[in-house]
Design a protein around this nucleic acid. Structure first.
Length: 125
DNA sequence: CTGATGACGGTGC
DNA sequence: GGCACCGCCATCA
């Protein structure tokens, strides 16, 4: 049995790689698409990335279109700069308009090819 | 094995 | 609009 075990983290990173240049996705969106149990999982996955990763981590922002602060304050500035270079505009309040720059998610064909199935967010009750 | 940790999001006040 | 609280669970020491 081709038991190639792919962790939920790997799945989420796979989704992040699909975010097109000039667009952004939220942690919750990534977690939902990859089938993670909580939006936090997406943040944890990105937290383990190496400094020289080729994963476009800068395209993942929080649900309000803002950059989530982390240990290193400089990282926030770095992310903002990378996004600006990709054409993503920030509002006066430092947030991104998700209606304009938000990513609509992977193509249905891509989802099917990778075995991803979009399900309602785990029954919240 | 146990416990701490962590790049979020929704809800209630 | 802000703030506090809770749920979420894969890793690592």
């Amino acid at each position: 049995m081709g038991g190639e075990v792919v962790s939920i983290y790997e799945k989420m990173l796979l989704v992040v790689r699909e975010i097109p240049l000039g667009r952004v996705a939220t942690y919750g969106q990534i977690a939902w698409i990859a089938g993670a149990a909580s939006p936090r999982m997406a943040g944890y996955a990105l937290g383990g990335l190496a400094a020289d990763t080729d994963v476009p981590w800068q395209r993942v922002v929080n649900g309000r279109g803002g950059i989530s602060p982390r240990g290193d304050p400089l990282a926030t500035d770095r992310q903002r700069k990378l996004l600006a270079e990709e054409g993503v505009r920030f509002g006066a309040d430092g947030r991104i308009d998700l209606d304009q720059f938000g990513w609509g998610g992977p193509d249905p064909e891509w989802l099917e090819a990778h075995g991803f199935v979009l399900l309602p967010w785990r029954a919240r009750g």
